[in-house]
Design a protein around this nucleic acid. Structure first.
Lengths: 103, 103
DNA sequence: TTGACTGATCAAGATTGTTTGATACATTTC
DNA sequence: GAAATGTATCAAACAATCTTGATCAGTCAA
């Protein structure tokens, strides 16, 4: 199941407080790495590691400008995750009212 | 941030292919553990471990009946996760059109 | 060209998560 | 009661992920 692999990688990217805080910072728009280390109070190499994790999952994009790098949310992927999550709630075939019994 | 801790634990529960497959099996309604080991092709103790992970995150509930245990999705928590995911897309304050410059 | 600065990468260690097999516990059946 | 069954838990092995500090590559300005 290729889909499950993709989905689990995306959810894994959100399964970390540090990365959720990074995303929270990006909600207002794109942000330079240099403007993230301070507010998030973390070392540059650690921030870089988490940004890469989010980028590999497709949740954020990067844009290089001179010696700075700006990161921003990828709304398309966030929307796809919403769709995935919605799908988990819907029955696969017909709705089954009674669970199969063990004997 | 208590919310971030909670959210990351929930996303972590979905950050695993095996657990996504378990959830997929529960989409049609509650299911007995004994009806999961076979289709998922996994050892009982491993299944039990993953069910616990999902239950600790609040994503599934269990119901004991005799010597069987039935698991089912907790739609309330899935809805809360949808809300969390939606929130990540919305700006925190006012929309900022231009990213802060580094100098 | 040199020096300063931004950000990525790497290796090593620390932490956390997953898998396995064995065992324990509760419930049912005989 | 004893045996059988369904499920949870435990310890140990293994695997993946996170954190740290050091170093490297690219860019800019003097």
């Amino acid at each position: 199941m290729k889909t499950a692999e993709n989905a689990s990688r995306r959810f894994h990217a959100l399964a970390d407080e540090t990365r959720l805080k990074i995303i929270d910072r990006l909600r207002d728009g794109e942000e330079c790495v240099c403007n993230l280390t301070g507010p998030l109070g973390m070392r540059q190499s650690l921030l870089s590691f988490h940004l890469r994790t989010l980028k590999d999952a497709g949740i954020i994009r990067d844009r290089k400008e001179g010696r700075w790098v700006y990161y921003s949310l990828n709304f398309d992927v966030l929307d796809e995750m919403l769709t995935t999550l919605e799908a988990l709630k819907k029955p696969r075939k017909g709705l089954r009212l009674i669970a199969p019994r063990c004997e």
